[in-house]
């Protein structure tokens, strides 16, 4: 067990006027740890995710990230250029809708290769080789490397988005409902893939989902949100098997058994 967190979040709040987006969120994320943020629509999950990933400016609070040199930097005291560089290299962001994270009119290979060029790779042959290797890892046939994601199914697009994000060897990946909108068999495949990649690469991840089964399968730790507040927080098994808060009990008891 390493003794330093990767991300330190304290007192993070976001207000939309007088309305609460998320309020007073504090936690540490450790290397190799997957944290699930669950809650119903409008509970503040995505607001929190966006505040953590510098996509949305929080009203108060701090988010500190341990850079590769070992020093903590407050994300909101960095320059815009530094934040963007972090986003392109050391972080990944997997959107619910792959069209938000992909460039739909350039080839699959270029979608993956673009991130490599952002970190300074220039050798075309090497970039293409790495891209094709990643397509294989996310189970997309290499014969599709020159096709545009427009021609891909929803599940393939989502896998391509994951390849695009992971190709630069990020240490932290944010995922917003990564399996939302996929049918269940495609969802199972994607979950298995994400689970395997997270284990193999030792990634840390923060996953927003309203699907408790997804949270159980992927996450070590879970935060339950309601009305912008984190109302329960703990080991995923514990939160799901022994929920303490009324709202968490309602969520867990609402799962359909098959």
């Amino acid at each position: 067990m390493t003794d330093t967190p990767l991300l330190k979040v304290s007192g993070l709040s976001k207000f939309y006027g007088s309305r609460i987006g998320c309020k007073d969120v504090c936690f540490d994320l450790w290397p190799g740890e997957v944290l699930a943020i669950v809650g119903e629509s409008g509970s503040g999950k995505t607001t929190l995710l966006n505040c953590l990933s510098t996509r949305l400016m929080p009203t108060t609070g701090s988010v500190e990230y341990r850079m590769r040199d070992g020093n903590f930097r407050d994300l909101y005291h960095m320059s815009e250029a530094e934040r963007r560089f972090l986003m392109r290299t050391d972080w990944g962001f997997v959107h619910q809708n792959p069209a938000d994270g992909l460039r739909m009119t350039v080839s699959a290979g270029a979608n993956v290769g673009e991130r490599l060029m952002a970190v300074g790779d220039r050798h075309y042959g090497k970039i293409r080789e790495t891209a094709s290797d990643w397509l294989t890892r996310v189970e997309i046939g290499t014969d599709r490397i020159d096709d545009q994601p427009r021609a891909f199914s929803g599940g393939m697009r989502q896998r391509l988005q994951i390849a695009r994000n992971l190709v630069t060897g990020p240490r932290l990946v944010f995922m917003d409902e990564p399996t939302g909108g996929l049918d269940v068999s495609v969802q199972a495949r994607l979950l298995d893939l994400v689970r395997g990649l997270v284990n193999d690469l030792g990634l840390s991840a923060i996953v927003v989902t309203h699907d408790l089964a997804v949270a159980r399968l992927l996450s070590h730790r879970m935060m339950v949100m309601k009305d912008g507040h984190v109302i329960e927080h703990g080991l995923t098994d514990r939160v799901l098997d022994d929920p303490r808060e009324p709202y968490t009990q309602l969520l867990v008891s609402s799962i359909l058994q098959v």
Partner: peptide, 9 residues
């Protein structure tokens, strides 16, 4: 057993 394994608080 579940308490010992951390599944129950």
């Amino acid at each position: 057993l579940k308490m010992l394994y951390g599944n129950y608080a």
